[in-house]
Amino acid sequence: MFKFTMKKLWMLTALIGLLSIVMMGCSSESSNTSDDGKKDGATKISVSALNNYPPLMFKKEGKLVGFEHDVLEAIAREENLEIEYKEMKFDGFIPGLQSNQVDVASSLLIREERKKVVDFADVFLKSGLVLVVAKDSPIHSLEDLKGKTIVATQGSTTLEKAKELAAKYGGEAKPLKETDALYTDVENGNSDALVLNSPTVDYRLKVDGDNVKFRIVGEHLTVDEHAFAVKKGNKKLVEKINSGLKTIKENGEFDKIHAEWFGK
């Protein structure tokens, strides 16, 4: 009788252990999604980011925000990516890709010379470069740039355009590393005009409202396309970005983000 009871007790213990293992497995399966919607095993990627490039990417209350930021986060949710943002100077973006410091570069315009050294994902925004001056500036046309100093962001296409305008109209192109510094330089009279992307300028004028200190001269200087860039040959990551971008455009998330930052 005693042996029989012990045998039954042993079997019962084994059964309880087996059930515990099964329950643990079920629990694991039900908790493989985190609070932010990312599943366990998300692919980690690093993104170079400007912290002063509104409304595309900038810092507000200590956190990176902006149109590009929100688009990247929406793509990440769709493709199960986990993003680490690395704040860098713009002229370090492409070298950062080439040296594997980052996996993705934001805030880049597609250029033929850049295509030779990085791979671009699909276009997510179209814009153009504009010439900006102080509200009371005597500059009202490109011809008025004769002998004037045009400031732009070092290492960017804005500086290329500033140099082109300076050469054409007999002025001087001046590089600065910080986007905010461009406005300050013009406001303080150290430079006469600046060149920037239209979304950034439009956002600045909108935020300034009645206290606006700047104005755009003439029409867009260029027609530009924005796209995220990766190291040359990283086709897998390009495919993930394109897949996520396509999804958020189809499900309406992209339009919501665009409306939030641009109002249309």
Rank of each mutant, 00 (worst) to 15 (best):
F93D: 01
L108C: 08
R114V: 08
T247S: 10
M11R: 08
V151Y: 07
D103S: 08
L108A: 06
R204W: 03
V217C: 01
S99E: 06
L221S: 00
G170C: 05
T222I: 03
H226V: 02
E84C: 07
E164W: 04
G147T: 04
V151E: 02
I94R: 06
R204M: 12
I83G: 00
T153R: 01
I139V: 14
P54I: 01
K235D: 05
D144R: 14
V118S: 03
K115S: 10
V47N: 00
L64R: 04
K235I: 08
D122G: 11
L145N: 05
G62I: 02
V130F: 05
G66D: 00
D40L: 15
K161D: 00
D91F: 14
T157E: 05
N100W: 07
H220Q: 04
I83D: 00
H69G: 03
G25M: 12
N251P: 11
K126F: 12
T179P: 11
S27T: 09
S46G: 09
D70L: 11
A259Y: 06
K44R: 14
D255R: 13
I139T: 11
A167W: 02
K177R: 10
K60I: 04
K174S: 05
E160W: 00
L12V: 09
K7P: 00
E82D: 13
R77C: 02
Q154H: 14
V223F: 11
E143C: 13
G41Y: 12
F4R: 05
D180W: 03
N190R: 13
K256R: 14
K264R: 04
D185C: 13
I248R: 09
L237E: 03
L159K: 02
V117A: 05
Y169R: 04
K231P: 03
L237D: 03
S30W: 09
S30D: 02
G96E: 04
E73L: 12
K44A: 11
H69D: 00
A49M: 13
P55I: 00
W261S: 04
L97P: 06
F58Q: 02
V212A: 12
A14Q: 11
S27P: 04
F228K: 11
R111V: 00
H258C: 12
A229M: 09
K86S: 11
I83Y: 01
A167T: 05
E113Y: 15
L12G: 06
F2D: 14
T149K: 13
L237N: 06
D255W: 12
K249T: 02
A166M: 12
L237Q: 07
G155S: 01
N234S: 03
T149Y: 03
L108D: 02
H258P: 07
M88G: 03
L131A: 07
G209Q: 07
K148P: 06
S141W: 10
L176C: 06
E172C: 08
V117E: 09
Q154D: 09
K163R: 15
F90Y: 15
V230N: 06
L165H: 12
E112H: 12
L97M: 05
F2Y: 15
S106K: 09
L15G: 06
D224M: 01
V186H: 04
F120P: 08
E61A: 15
D136F: 13
A74Q: 10
E178F: 14
G252S: 04
M11E: 03
I257N: 13
D136I: 10
H258R: 15
G92T: 10
M24N: 04
G66P: 01
S198T: 01
I110Q: 10
E253D: 09
V47G: 00
S198N: 12
L194Q: 01
